[in-house]
Simulated scan of single mutants.
Amino acid sequence: MTVTTVAHYHFPATTREAVLGRLLPIAQATLTEPGLEYFHILETPSDEGHLILIEGWRDRDALATHRERPHFIEGLLGSVVPLLQERTVHIGAPAFDEQFS
């Protein structure tokens, strides 16, 4: 069953380019991972200091493996997170057996 993470990153708008610059190689590495089903980074036009990351993983094991990789630990946690004012992450799975699209 697909596990989805939705993360909100809030940062000063003045650090936008630094956040995006550090996030890009992490996103590129994440896209190569087995078990990743989809990955989106969304900007909010009304707030230059807010990104929304949406990831879909094949299952909880794939997500757990992702969180053990160097680009997550050193790249995201070690390089991007220190630039953030706030980071919230929500993990969810489908509420219904049927697929909605």
Rank of each mutant, 00 (worst) to 15 (best):
E37H: 14
F11C: 05
S79Q: 15
V81W: 03
P45S: 09
L51K: 01
L24W: 06
P25R: 09
L24M: 12
H66N: 04
L84R: 05
L76T: 00
E48W: 00
V89F: 05
G49V: 00
L42E: 10
T88K: 07
A64M: 02
E37N: 14
T30A: 14
A64E: 12
L51E: 00
F39V: 03
G75P: 08
R67D: 04
E98R: 12
D47F: 00
R87H: 13
G21F: 06
P94L: 13
S79D: 15
Y38I: 03
I26F: 04
H50T: 00
L63H: 11
E43H: 10
H71G: 05
S46W: 06
G49H: 06
D47W: 00
F100W: 10
H50Q: 06
D47N: 13
L51Y: 00
L31G: 00
V19F: 07
Q28P: 01
R67V: 02
H90Y: 14
G35W: 04
A29T: 07
V6S: 12
T32F: 07
P12W: 09
I91Q: 11
E43V: 01
H8M: 13
E17I: 09
R69N: 02
R58E: 10
E33Y: 08
G92I: 06
V81F: 10
M1P: 12
T65W: 03
L42G: 07
D61T: 09
R67L: 10
P25E: 10
S79M: 03
E37R: 14
T5R: 14
A7Y: 03
T15V: 09
L31T: 03
L51I: 01
L24S: 09
I91S: 05
V89L: 14
Q99L: 14
L23D: 01
L84T: 06
H10M: 12
A27K: 11
G92V: 11
T2V: 15
G49M: 02
